[in-house]
Amino acid sequence: MAINLKELSKQGDFLTSGHRACAGCGPAIALRQALLAAGKDTVVANATGCMEVVTTIFPYTAWKVPWIHSLFENAAATISGVEAAYKALKRKGKISKDINFIAFGGDGGTYDIGLQALSGTMERGHNILYICYDNEAYMNTGIQRSGATPYGAHTTTSPAGKKIPGKTQWRKDLTEIIAAHDIPYVAQATISEWRDYMGKVQKALSIKGPKFINVLAPCQLGWYYKSEDTIKIANLAFRTRFWPLYEVENGVHRITKEPKKAVPVEEWLKLQGRFRHLFKDENRKIIEKIQKRVDERWKRLKALEEAGL
């Protein structure tokens, strides 16, 4: 399933211009690439969050596929209802087309408030793909910490203060949490490695049952960097091994794209204003701590892969 940009460009976009995401918005790229990979016959459910807000300000919609938004925490439950309806109507001969069912949620709507609904949907085995566009905080409400916000990051509810240097908890590993549901396909991706990401979307959609992709999607507003650097930062997250690209197919971990030589995590951190305070002398040890964690997690992933687990 090679992704060919020239071929893809012929089908046109399913997320059109005129939406109101910030200039250089990573999540908008994540959605657009996913839809290009999925194609026209796709129904989308979207959780409340930046992407829902900026794409559907009445009377304008940026969507060229059927799309439904209901609430913040229920994108997974909503798509499971849509998919159940499809199954029932297909059985009754009222619909015959093959349709992709995709839910998009931000990290807040997925790691945190929507985790229960997502877990239920995965466990019930609906034939859907859930894509979490992870911009590592609640951006729509003004950059608050989430379970996905990395250690040390400044957000408006984990501010870098005189006493507390940003977020003092590690991010939860949602990809592994979902993998533990023993579903056919789970993957982690980043928008800079579009071929890897879009290939995963297509692969996921070719598999029956519940699928999950966690795609890192930098946010210039919340990560405090210049809008042109979105892809560069998405790429560095992968090259520093902060965000490994891998998949878990039928329970087996496989690294899909490996940086030849790991770049120190500091190179990634230093481009982002949310980590600026870590570069003060007294906080330097936090960077070391983050590096150590990144190395440990990578080792763990490698070990899983090598063991065929």
Partner: peptide, 17 residues
Amino acid sequence: VESEHSAASACTGAAAA
């Protein structure tokens, strides 16, 4: 479903379909 919140959500999604 795993909760009534999801029951109502799935029902709403299904009705929209």
